[in-house]
Design a protein around this nucleic acid. Structure first.
Length: 578
DNA sequence: GCCGTTTTCGGCCCGACTGTTTTCAGTCG
């Protein structure tokens, strides 16, 4: 029998679905909101609910979760179902949710369509719109009918989220364009991009200008605009030729801080902050902080936070995952910065699938301000990368020894990215691994192993006496490949006991560990190494992406292995072998 | 349905844009 695991996302989805159906059912709007709030809490938790319950934690202590919702959640953890949701499904077909997902369709319109035309699925809606029947309903006109048809067509194009690094290129061009508009002073990319999320759904751009109309006219005239979704005097939304949605909002200079805070979000964070304001008799919106009608703060973000008695919170932490609590207790972490990194422990050369020589990689590392670099080419099992066998690796080791004798200001460490084979053994014999400064183990095959086998495979690899670090621990490729099924918490606990390290791989499509597991590792005292996995001299830029992800994972300098000076690092690497 | 250093009852985050409307409901972020 297979055990169905109920994750936080499943529970949050069920709570959101209840909220949607309650709203269609004309329930008390605040009751609806309670379910949405709870869903948000669950999503932003950063800890597995199942684990919390097993540890005997009272769910009622979580914000927005009271007696009823705690019972609902526990019921779902126990049985896999939520009775409250199944009750609603007796009244409304589950397919109504599909209607809600169409842009422009909310609960009121879905309710009208269902009750008055019997429409309960997207194909039915499309047929009704094509035959012109929607116009018969009060509140529905011909424009709305066309808008619905357009939205259905747009939805058929798969919804994509954009890797942050990719969105960054488009953002840069747009920022340059907007800055060239006369009268514009500041142009800032806000939203999930500024919070450093690994993918973004759209770009939110904030512009300050004395007059906002010229900004709005310019954005809809931008050469790359394919479609204008809305165009007002202070806010416009457009879709670019590549399909990326861009929302531009213009305010005047004195609202900069409040608007920057507002549009950076997250939504959960904003709601929490506005509630704090409300308790102090303050109204917080994108124009500022107001006491009655008086503008009391808003020029800078810092002012907005100060108005509710908090220190400035870094954008990467504004996810509703306890940052406001930590700020209140004056316990925010001093987040790691790029300059804290002293070295890079995962790089490739043309000996395997890299593009540059060792010397070129070392020079590039120096240009990036690094004091040490580990050369970690692939091992023989990864034949597509022309992985190193024992003989070639020994030659590389000698080569690196010669480089170290000749070079100043940087240390080159001898390493390997060795394949973890299906049985958990490493792809090279211990006698060779013993000659290296560090051994990075990596899974590059058999991603489909069942959870238990995959977990035990990696645990066994960690137990090799020369194992130093686990590369890209979940194996995911953002938007391309799911993480393999593995008990990450067990890996983290084992790394703590075994005294080895976990990688945060900075490749934009990997960013692996993710933010949640970074926090988990930190809690267990496992040091993280932020590595570029550079395959060319340009690859060291990945360190910047890794830093952003680490900050989202609440990591400080002390939590990161490669912030250590080279001697301390070597000591730590030796300790993994004792 | 949740929550409380004003409250165990009576509140609950805030504003822009669109379409269908003669003053606003619905949706979105």
């Amino acid at each position: 029998m297979t055990v169905v695991r109920i994750g936080n996302e499943d529970i949050a989805n069920a709570l959101d679905e209840i909220a949607n159906l309650l709203e269609i059912d004309n329930a008390n709007p605040f009751r609806v909101r309670a379910y949405r709030n709870a869903a948000r809490t669950v999503r932003g938790l950063g800890k597995n609910l199942e684990t919390l319950v097993q540890q005997g934690r009272d769910l009622k202590s979580l914000p927005g979760i009271g007696r009823d919702l705690a019972a609902n959640i526990e019921q779902m953890l126990d049985t896999g179902h939520m009775a409250a949701l199944e009750e609603l499904h007796k009244k409304f077909p589950a397919s109504l949710e599909d209607l809600l997902r169409i842009s422009g369709m909310g609960p009121k319109r879905v309710q009208a369509l269902y009750h008055q035309l019997g429409i309960k699925s997207v194909p039915q809606l499309e047929r009704a719109a094509r035959s012109g029947r929607l116009c018969e309903l009060p509140g529905f006109g011909s424009k709305l009918q066309q808008q619905i048809l357009d939205a259905i067509a747009a939805q058929k194009v798969a919804e994509v989220r954009w890797p942050r690094a990719q969105a960054a290129m488009y953002a840069e061009q747009l920022v340059g364009y907007l800055k060239s508009i006369p009268g514009v002073s500041e142009v800032l990319v806000t939203g999930s991009y500024r919070r450093g999320k690994e993918t973004v759904g759209d770009l939110d751009i904030l512009v300050t200008a004395a007059k906002t109309d010229p900004v709005m006219q310019s954005i809809i005239a931008y050469q790359d605009v394919k479609q204008v979704l809305s165009a007002g005097s202070t806010r416009s939304s457009v879709i670019l030729e590549n399909g990326l949605q861009v929302d531009v909002r213009a305010v005047n200079q004195q609202s900069l801080g409040a608007a920057l805070h507002y549009f950076t979000g997250s939504k959960a964070h904003n709601i929490q902050l506005r509630r704090l304001g409300q308790k102090r008799g303050l109204k917080i919106n994108e124009y500022g902080v107001f006491k009655g009608k008086r503008h009391v703060a808003g020029n800078t973000e810092k002012q907005v936070f100060r108005s509710v008695g908090l220190p400035w919170i870094p954008p990467e932490l504004r996810e509703g995952g306890g940052a406001i609590d930590a700020a209140r207790r004056r316990a925010l972490p001093q987040l790691i910065e790029r300059d804290d990194l002293k070295g890079d422990l995962h790089t490739h050369t043309q000996a395997t699938d890299g593009q540059a020589t060792i010397e070129e990689m070392v020079n590039a590392a120096q240009r990036h301000g690094l004091r040490y670099i580990a050369i970690t080419d692939h091992s023989r099992h990864l034949t597509v990368a022309h992985g190193l066998d024992r003989k070639r690796l020994l030659r590389q080791i000698e080569h690196i020894d010669r480089i170290n004798e000749a070079i100043k200001g940087i240390t080159v460490l001898k390493g390997i990215e060795v394949d973890i084979l299906e049985d958990g053994s490493l792809d090279l014999p211990d006698a060779v691994l013993a000659r290296l400064d560090l051994v990075i183990g990596a899974v590059h095959s058999r991603f489909q192993l069942p959870r238990k086998k995959q977990t035990e495979r990696i645990l066994r690899a960690m137990d090799d006496r020369y194992f130093s670090m686990l590369a890209h621990p979940s194996g995911r490729l953002i938007g391309a490949r799911q993480a393999y099924d593995v008990d990450m918490e067990r890996l983290v606990r084992h790394a703590a006991e075994r005294g080895c390290f976990l990688e945060l791989n900075g490749q934009p499509q990997r960013l692996d560990l993710n933010d949640v597991y970074c926090r988990m590792a930190q809690e267990h005292g496992v040091l993280i190494s932020i590595n570029s996995d550079a395959h060319s001299v340009a690859g060291f830029g990945n360190l910047d992406h890794g830093i952003v992800q680490a900050r989202r994972g609440w990591l400080s300098k002390k939590d990161v292995l490669n912030t250590r000076p080279v001697n301390a690092l070597k000591r730590l690497l030796r300790q993994t072998r004792s």
